[in-house]
Simulated scan of single mutants.
Amino acid sequence: MKLNNKFENPGTLKAVDAILELRKNRVIPNNTIYEGSFDRQVDLYNNRKAAIIFAFTWSLARFNDDVAKDTVIIPIPRISDESIDTRNFTIGGVSQSICISKKAWADLSKREAIIKLIDWIFSDEVFIARYRESGSFPAKKMDISIIDKPIYIKSANYIKNSEIYDLHEFYFNSLGAFNQFKEANDLLWSGALSRDEFMDMVQNVMGRVVEKN
């Protein structure tokens, strides 16, 4: 996608076909927005009303310890004819960035305050607090062994030997294209779009960005 700005490639086509197969087999609930929320999934799991769920690390703090003790983390199920084994990788990316305006930085009366604020935001104290309260793994290397909750320990051990691939959002050529992709996904999973309609909906925005450039 980064090389040619084309959304349609063997990987995306396989993913769409897999989603449509899930819909065909009635695996996807009709109310995809409600049933697909992370809070809803973890709540069902905590009440032992769901045998398997999909969860990102920011949901870790919601897991009950007694349920977490019985939990086994597994890779995302592999598409049968795909060559990459899902047991060997996970996905990850930076979820926070800081932008300091040139004008503010040039103002010496503000610069000292900016430095203090950024030092605090990137301190071990804040990273540990965010990790403990939400499950956001720190991007920098630091000691997180003080967290003793079962689901945190299992998650940290699971990714220890995994290669990390970038999130797909980093490969779109504009924020608008990525937002269109998310909207198209909602429509696809809900059954409102065909394969071609989904591909065209995303590609049209990526193509418009290329034309502007």
Rank of each mutant, 00 (worst) to 15 (best):
L167A: 13
I151N: 03
R132P: 01
Y165M: 10
E163A: 15
D119R: 15
I128G: 09
N173T: 02
M142C: 11
D143R: 07
N161G: 06
K140W: 00
K160P: 01
R111F: 00
N173Q: 07
D124L: 10
Y131T: 05
I128E: 10
L117G: 10
N179K: 09
I159H: 11
K149Q: 05
K154R: 12
K116A: 11
I147R: 03
S145I: 08
D143V: 02
N157Q: 14
I159P: 02
P138L: 15
I118T: 10
D124M: 09
D148F: 06
G176S: 09
I118H: 09
V126T: 04
I115Y: 04
Y165Q: 09
I144S: 10
L175T: 09
A104Q: 04
G176L: 07
H168F: 03
F122A: 14
A156T: 07
I147T: 00
K110Y: 03
A129Y: 04
A106R: 12
I146W: 05
E169P: 00
I121E: 07
L167N: 10
I114Q: 05
F137A: 15
K141M: 08
I164P: 00
K110I: 07
K154P: 01
A177F: 00
N157L: 14
A113H: 01
A129L: 10
L117M: 12
K154N: 07
F178P: 03
K140P: 01
K102N: 04
I121D: 05
D124F: 02
D124G: 09
K149M: 03
A129N: 09
E125Q: 12
I114Y: 02
D124R: 11
L175N: 12
A104F: 01
D124H: 07
I153L: 15
I146K: 14
E163R: 15
A177M: 04
E169D: 06
K102R: 10
I147S: 07
F172K: 12
I151C: 07
F172Q: 06
N157R: 15
K140Y: 01
D166V: 04
I146F: 06
K102E: 02
E133S: 15
F122V: 11
I151S: 06
W120V: 06
K102I: 05
P150F: 15
I164Y: 01
K103C: 03
D148R: 13
N173P: 03
I128F: 11
A113Q: 03
A113I: 01
M142H: 05
A113E: 02
Y165N: 09
I164N: 00
L167R: 13
S155K: 12
S174T: 06
N161D: 08
Y131G: 11
E112F: 04
D107W: 05
S109V: 12
A139C: 08
N179E: 04
F178L: 13
I147P: 00
K141T: 06
E112R: 08
D124Q: 12
S145C: 10
R130E: 04
S109A: 14
E163F: 09
I147E: 10
N161P: 01
A177W: 00
K149R: 14
E133R: 15
D143Y: 02
N173K: 06
F122E: 07
S155P: 02
A156G: 03
I146S: 13
S145D: 04
